[in-house]
Amino acid sequence: MTSRVLLVSPAMTASLRRAAFDDGDPLDASGAARARAAAGSLPAADAVAVSPGVRCRETAEALGLTVDDAPPELAGLDAGRWRGRTLEEAGAAEPEAVGRWLADPTAATPGGESVADVCARVARWLDALGPAGGRTVAVVEPEVVRAAAVHATAAPPSAFWRFDVPPLTRTELTGRAGRWNLRLGGPLIAG
Protein backbone atom coordinates (compact mmCIF):
# COMPACT_ATOMS: atom_id res chain seq x y z
CA MET A 1 0.00 0.00 0.00
CA THR A 2 1.30 3.46 -0.88
CA SER A 3 1.39 6.29 1.63
CA ARG A 4 1.30 9.87 0.43
CA VAL A 5 2.49 12.70 2.63
CA LEU A 6 2.04 16.33 1.65
CA LEU A 7 4.17 18.63 3.82
CA VAL A 8 3.15 22.29 3.83
CA SER A 9 5.48 24.90 5.30
CA PRO A 10 3.92 27.68 7.40
CA ALA A 11 3.00 31.08 6.05
CA MET A 12 5.10 34.17 6.82
CA THR A 13 5.75 35.43 10.36
CA ALA A 14 7.93 38.17 11.80
CA SER A 15 10.59 35.64 12.86
CA LEU A 16 10.64 34.09 9.37
CA ARG A 17 11.09 37.58 7.86
CA ARG A 18 14.06 38.16 10.17
CA ALA A 19 15.42 34.64 9.48
CA ALA A 20 15.30 34.10 13.24
CA PHE A 21 14.82 30.88 15.18
CA ASP A 22 11.09 30.44 15.81
CA ASP A 23 9.92 32.19 18.95
CA GLY A 24 6.26 31.23 18.79
CA ASP A 25 5.06 34.31 16.93
CA PRO A 26 1.79 34.25 14.99
CA LEU A 27 1.35 34.68 11.25
CA ASP A 28 1.76 38.24 10.07
CA ALA A 29 -1.07 39.88 8.10
CA SER A 30 0.38 39.06 4.68
CA GLY A 31 1.13 35.46 5.68
CA ALA A 32 -2.40 34.94 6.97
CA ALA A 33 -3.87 36.48 3.80
CA ARG A 34 -1.76 34.26 1.52
CA ALA A 35 -2.72 31.17 3.49
CA ARG A 36 -6.43 32.08 3.29
CA ALA A 37 -6.03 32.62 -0.46
CA ALA A 38 -4.61 29.08 -0.76
CA ALA A 39 -7.55 27.50 1.09
CA GLY A 40 -9.04 24.71 -0.98
CA SER A 41 -5.85 24.16 -3.01
CA LEU A 42 -4.82 20.97 -1.19
CA PRO A 43 -6.09 17.50 -2.04
CA ALA A 44 -8.44 15.67 0.31
CA ALA A 45 -6.59 13.85 3.09
CA ASP A 46 -7.20 10.83 5.27
CA ALA A 47 -5.38 12.59 8.12
CA VAL A 48 -4.18 16.13 8.87
CA ALA A 49 -1.29 16.80 11.24
CA VAL A 50 0.58 19.93 12.32
CA SER A 51 3.77 20.85 14.04
CA PRO A 52 2.74 21.97 17.53
CA GLY A 53 3.87 25.58 16.99
CA VAL A 54 1.61 28.63 16.65
CA ARG A 55 2.49 29.47 13.04
CA CYS A 56 1.74 25.93 11.82
CA ARG A 57 -1.59 25.77 13.65
CA GLU A 58 -2.58 29.20 12.29
CA THR A 59 -1.53 28.24 8.75
CA ALA A 60 -3.60 25.05 8.92
CA GLU A 61 -6.59 27.03 10.18
CA ALA A 62 -6.22 29.64 7.42
CA LEU A 63 -6.01 26.84 4.85
CA GLY A 64 -9.32 25.52 6.15
CA LEU A 65 -7.85 22.26 7.44
CA THR A 66 -9.32 20.32 10.35
CA VAL A 67 -6.34 19.03 12.32
CA ASP A 68 -6.39 15.47 13.65
CA ASP A 69 -3.01 15.41 15.41
CA ALA A 70 0.00 17.48 16.51
CA PRO A 71 2.60 14.77 17.13
CA PRO A 72 5.71 15.84 19.06
CA GLU A 73 7.87 14.27 16.31
CA LEU A 74 6.76 17.13 14.04
CA ALA A 75 7.96 19.92 16.33
CA GLY A 76 10.43 22.38 14.88
CA LEU A 77 14.05 22.38 15.99
CA ASP A 78 14.39 23.25 19.66
CA ALA A 79 16.80 26.20 19.42
CA GLY A 80 17.28 26.40 23.17
CA ARG A 81 18.57 29.78 24.24
CA TRP A 82 18.86 30.91 20.61
CA ARG A 83 15.08 31.00 20.33
CA GLY A 84 13.96 34.28 18.75
CA ARG A 85 17.51 35.23 17.70
CA THR A 86 18.89 35.37 14.19
CA LEU A 87 21.87 33.17 13.41
CA GLU A 88 23.96 36.36 13.23
CA GLU A 89 22.86 37.36 16.75
CA ALA A 90 23.54 33.88 18.13
CA GLY A 91 26.93 33.87 16.37
CA ALA A 92 27.90 37.23 17.87
CA ALA A 93 27.09 35.96 21.37
CA GLU A 94 28.36 32.37 21.00
CA PRO A 95 30.53 32.04 17.89
CA GLU A 96 32.11 28.71 18.84
CA ALA A 97 28.75 27.09 19.63
CA VAL A 98 27.24 28.31 16.34
CA GLY A 99 30.27 27.11 14.40
CA ARG A 100 30.06 23.69 16.04
CA TRP A 101 26.32 23.45 15.45
CA LEU A 102 26.59 24.37 11.76
CA ALA A 103 29.53 22.02 11.11
CA ASP A 104 28.43 19.00 13.13
CA PRO A 105 24.84 17.70 12.78
CA THR A 106 25.18 15.92 16.14
CA ALA A 107 26.00 19.17 18.01
CA ALA A 108 22.99 20.58 19.84
CA THR A 109 22.07 24.20 20.22
CA PRO A 110 22.74 25.38 23.81
CA GLY A 111 19.81 24.03 25.79
CA GLY A 112 18.22 22.65 22.61
CA GLU A 113 18.70 19.84 20.15
CA SER A 114 20.81 18.84 17.18
CA VAL A 115 19.94 18.54 13.52
CA ALA A 116 20.55 14.78 13.81
CA ASP A 117 17.92 14.64 16.59
CA VAL A 118 15.35 16.40 14.39
CA CYS A 119 16.14 14.11 11.46
CA ALA A 120 15.77 10.99 13.63
CA ARG A 121 12.40 11.92 15.09
CA VAL A 122 10.93 12.98 11.73
CA ALA A 123 12.18 9.70 10.21
CA ARG A 124 10.40 7.77 12.97
CA TRP A 125 7.16 9.60 12.21
CA LEU A 126 7.44 9.00 8.46
CA ASP A 127 8.29 5.33 8.87
CA ALA A 128 5.31 4.82 11.16
CA LEU A 129 3.08 6.27 8.40
CA GLY A 130 4.58 4.08 5.68
CA PRO A 131 2.58 0.89 6.28
CA ALA A 132 -0.69 2.75 6.92
CA GLY A 133 -1.30 3.93 3.37
CA GLY A 134 -3.54 6.84 2.47
CA ARG A 135 -2.82 10.55 2.25
CA THR A 136 -1.62 12.71 5.13
CA VAL A 137 -1.42 16.48 4.88
CA ALA A 138 0.90 17.99 7.48
CA VAL A 139 1.56 21.70 8.08
CA VAL A 140 5.06 21.60 9.51
CA GLU A 141 8.05 23.73 10.36
CA PRO A 142 10.69 24.16 7.62
CA GLU A 143 13.12 22.05 9.69
CA VAL A 144 10.67 19.15 9.55
CA VAL A 145 10.48 19.43 5.75
CA ARG A 146 14.29 19.42 5.57
CA ALA A 147 14.51 16.39 7.87
CA ALA A 148 11.90 14.54 5.78
CA ALA A 149 13.91 15.29 2.62
CA VAL A 150 17.06 13.96 4.31
CA HIS A 151 15.25 10.75 5.23
CA ALA A 152 13.53 10.29 1.87
CA THR A 153 16.80 10.62 -0.03
CA ALA A 154 18.82 8.58 2.50
CA ALA A 155 21.18 11.56 2.73
CA PRO A 156 23.37 12.14 5.78
CA PRO A 157 22.11 14.69 8.35
CA SER A 158 24.78 17.09 7.07
CA ALA A 159 22.61 17.52 3.92
CA PHE A 160 19.90 19.14 6.07
CA TRP A 161 21.17 22.65 5.23
CA ARG A 162 21.07 21.92 1.47
CA PHE A 163 17.26 22.06 1.32
CA ASP A 164 15.62 25.49 1.17
CA VAL A 165 12.00 25.61 2.30
CA PRO A 166 10.17 28.84 1.43
CA PRO A 167 7.02 29.80 3.33
CA LEU A 168 3.71 28.32 2.22
CA THR A 169 5.12 25.70 -0.15
CA ARG A 170 4.37 22.02 -0.54
CA THR A 171 6.71 19.04 -0.57
CA GLU A 172 5.33 15.62 -1.43
CA LEU A 173 6.52 12.19 -0.38
CA THR A 174 5.18 8.87 -1.55
CA GLY A 175 6.33 5.65 -0.01
CA ARG A 176 5.91 1.97 0.44
CA ALA A 177 7.97 -0.75 2.06
CA GLY A 178 10.35 1.71 3.74
CA ARG A 179 11.24 3.60 0.57
CA TRP A 180 10.21 7.21 0.01
CA ASN A 181 10.15 9.26 -3.19
CA LEU A 182 10.36 13.03 -2.96
CA ARG A 183 8.79 15.86 -4.97
CA LEU A 184 10.20 19.16 -3.73
CA GLY A 185 8.22 22.26 -2.90
CA GLY A 186 6.00 24.22 -5.15
CA PRO A 187 3.81 27.13 -4.11
CA LEU A 188 0.26 26.43 -2.99
CA ILE A 189 -0.93 29.33 -5.12
CA ALA A 190 0.63 31.27 -7.97
CA GLY A 191 2.28 34.61 -7.24
Rank of each mutant, 00 (worst) to 15 (best):
T153Y: 09
S3D: 01
E89M: 01
L27H: 12
A32D: 15
V122R: 07
C56P: 00
P187K: 09
G76V: 00
T153M: 14
L7R: 05
G80R: 06
I189F: 00
A103K: 03
L188T: 01
S41H: 09
A149S: 15
L168V: 06
A128T: 13
G24Q: 12
P10M: 12
R83Y: 02
R135N: 02
F21Q: 00
R81D: 06
D164C: 02
A107Q: 01
A47E: 15
G111W: 08
A90K: 04
D164H: 11
G111F: 08
A154H: 14
H151E: 00
P142G: 14
R170Y: 00
G134C: 13
L188I: 06
A108P: 14
L182V: 05
T86N: 06
V122Y: 03
A93E: 14
A154R: 15
L168T: 09
W125R: 07
A14Q: 10
S51V: 01
G99P: 05
G84R: 04
G134N: 13
L129G: 09
S15N: 05
W161F: 04
A62H: 14
A90T: 01
A33K: 07
T136F: 13
A155Y: 11
D127K: 05
C56V: 05
R124K: 06
S51L: 06
A38H: 06
T171P: 08
I189P: 00
A107R: 00
A14T: 12
V67E: 10
G40F: 02
V115K: 03
G112E: 09
P43Y: 10
L6N: 03
P142K: 12
R57P: 03
E113W: 11
P10D: 15
D22L: 00
D25R: 15
L173I: 10
D69K: 00
V139I: 12
P156A: 11
D68P: 06
A70M: 02
V98Y: 09
G64K: 09
G84H: 07
A152E: 11
R17W: 03
L27F: 08
L182N: 01
T169F: 03
A147Y: 07
A107S: 12
A20F: 05
A147G: 10
D68T: 09
A79K: 05
A97M: 08
V54D: 11
A47R: 15
R176K: 10
W161T: 02
A37K: 00
I189Y: 00
T2P: 11
C119N: 10
R81K: 05
A123Y: 05
E141A: 15
G80W: 07
A123K: 01
T106Q: 08
R83M: 11
T86K: 07
D117R: 13
L188K: 02
P43A: 09
G130V: 05
M12D: 14
W161D: 01
E141D: 15
A123L: 04
D69Y: 00
C119F: 08
R55M: 10
A90E: 01
A128S: 13
G24S: 10
A152I: 06
C119T: 15
A116P: 12
V5F: 08
